[in-house]
Design a protein around this nucleic acid. Structure first.
Lengths: 227, 227, 227, 227
DNA sequence: AATGAATGAGCCTTCATTCAT
DNA sequence: GATGAATGAAGGCTCATTCAT
């Protein structure tokens, strides 16, 4: 319609990535905001300034588009999250863990203007659509592995130890909870100030709480390795 | 609308329920399974063996039925959960807390055949529908209050202390995480055996982890009461 | 519900005419206002403060209720209209005709607070429902007969003369038009002031216009009785 | 929405019409026959041999379709009625008026197979739907204006004279009455033969009646111009 | 005589998808 | 490669009516 050509990213060129990407961007925004069911194909296409048949032409259907959005969200979160930098660290320390907690919490709660990636993920995790299985392979296992190795380091136990598995859950839980239920958390605890300085304090709290907790649990297994 | 005759059917059960109640039961089941959008009025009425106009007759529409389901879920959770019994305890102890944790986790993950109450709640919390606000007043605040007083007891700090607020979040987070993401947790950590004996072990872990964590955090504030 | 017993009209007593009549009254009001299709049974019963099954109990259905309303409207219009008084006159004169025109127009356009009778009639005439045929026998023929005899008097021709038939139509037309299209007439000709003194002037106009018209037509048939 | 391609199908007719037009045609037919409420979307689409979603696609809903039907009816009536030709006449005469009356009555009562335009209009006039206001601006005022100028010519009084306003009403009334209540008129006066030669005779009658009536009224105002 | 509960038919609309271009 | 037109399936809801009391 208008003369709007965006930059052909990289050098792949020639295929009209533009339309395809515009659709993904619009879909991500709306899926994050309204969920898979409530976001309609037409809304998405209107927002993307594309004909409403395009979603079928390019993706083969609404469901496949959703899957593509999930993949894109995964890429965004992995490439730009604190997770990646930390995963490449070779030698851990309690200080580094504290820094990571701060960065991680920030990336989860940070107010990036259009970070639909995170919001789409959270919807998928607690209310799985049929696309869930593929997504799980992609996103969840790597994250779980990282937190297990973190717990393993603090506890001084092997990564596949049952106590480490539970420890990892206790860690993830604290981040996931505020991430998934941010709306509720802020409503019930307005003094927390997650949007401002409260974020740092909460990260520090989680760090202190977690380290002490992990060590206490670990000590039980070292005295008398029950299982 | 609220005060209808309603025979308490001693043990005959399952068929002699009021139409109204049969609808709520069916709706709870399907809303929990498929979400508000995917669960159709007709499915609900078919399952309840009721004419499809009944939902409008008794509730005035799908949305109001949903709200009633939410209220019913609240009642179920409050009346029969471990929460209530615990809230009435007057003198706490670490042993009682452990027992409570076990009971609470059990009530959240317990495999009661049709415990749609919990599943409906979780959907509402992470993907709020317009009915959210009323629900928040009803369900969330009392729960939050209980966990705060628990943290306050362990930490030896006043309930409105900022550290206690964060401590309560760390506790709730661990329960909420496995509750909200049970599907994911079991998929990534199959060795956990949440359906069997792993449940007790996880409750014990959370208890040990939490107590140590809370005390560690509290000690910082007692040495040098930063705030 | 409350203790509302209305006067048992006349002396028939004992049968609960009250309920039945309340329904007819409410139905008349709503049928006049919204038409047969848009006025719902429940609206009617709500307005009559009666259970919604009563309309079927007393009348056997919405359609039969409508017919009853039509009959009631007929009775009202015949008994209390200027029509009746005039029909009983034995000797006509131009002055009496003018008086009748004034009275008739007044009864059609008069702002009686709840004169749903007339409004129901007009709806039926220009948009007949299946109940039309019975209504026609009841209401239309007597009215037509009266206007024919009036035209016959002015024209000096027999009542079944073809010219008289057409003359009667020209008379009725002028009353029916402002009656049926009052809304439109007032919108297009606001200077007419039908609600106030304009009514008398219009009646006088119709009288003058009609008499001259009838006489002119009649003269043609007297000079050369074409048919 | 308005400027669509639209082959003027020379004489092929009836099948090669646009979907949009087929819908309007079918809707006009059914709205005329059954009214807005009784005519269902599905009936319309079945008659138009179109999918039942098309009415929403093309018009946005049943109500907007109705409005479009009203507009189309207006166009039909204005373009092809005797009204238009007459309105363009510059010099009037009694003979021309008689010819016009004949043509006008014919266009109102003429038995063109699918002249739903007129029937839709009459329904709207005596039982206005919410679409009435727009319709009034479009259709009514021009017609009223024409009849006023006609009355003005015969009476020899200015168009905005109060007597002329009433005179115009008397004229319109006679056409509108037989038009709006054709069913009733034919039932009560079967000898009229509106479908055959009676039509010409009625037109002649109206002409004779009207001219005499107008002149008589006018003479009153010329002798003593009361107002 | 009269009612509250429940029903079944049908209506308007929405939505993802497909087809011809 | 991309689109406007059109479709079919289904969804929520309304309404007159019936049934048991």
């Amino acid at each position: 319609m208008e003369n709007r050509k965006e930059y052909i990213d990289g050098g792949t060129a020639s295929e009209s990535l533009t339309t395809r990407n515009r659709i993904i961007e619009a879909a991500g925004h709306l899926f994050a905001q309204d969920g898979f069911d409530r976001a309609t194909s037409r809304q998405i296409c209107d927002l993307a300034r594309v004909n409403c048949a395009a979603v079928n032409y390019h993706f083969g259907g609404k469901e496949q588009l959703y899957l593509e959005v999930l993949r894109e969200a995964h890429r965004t979160l992995v490439h730009f999250g604190a997770l990646k930098n930390f995963a490449q660290e070779s030698d851990l320390s309690e200080e580094k863990i504290e820094a990571f907690f701060l960065g991680y919490l920030g990336s989860l709660l940070g107010n990036s203007p259009d970070s639909w990636a995170a919001r789409v993920m959270l919807r998928e995790m607690s209310a799985p659509t049929p696309a869930f299985d593929e997504f799980a392979q992609l996103q969840l296992r790597p994250t779980a592995k990282l937190f297990r190795s973190l717990a393993s380091f603090v506890m001084g136990l092997p990564v596949d130890h049952e106590a480490v598995v539970r420890g990892a859950i206790s860690i993830v839980a604290q981040f996931a909870f505020v991430f998934q239920n941010r709306h509720v958390v802020e409503m019930v605890n307005p003094e927390l100030d997650l949007a401002g300085q409260g974020l740092d304090r909460l990260a520090h709290h989680i760090w202190r709480f977690t380290l002490a907790g992990l060590k206490a649990v670990a000590s039980d297994y070292k005295k008398e390795p029950v299982k």
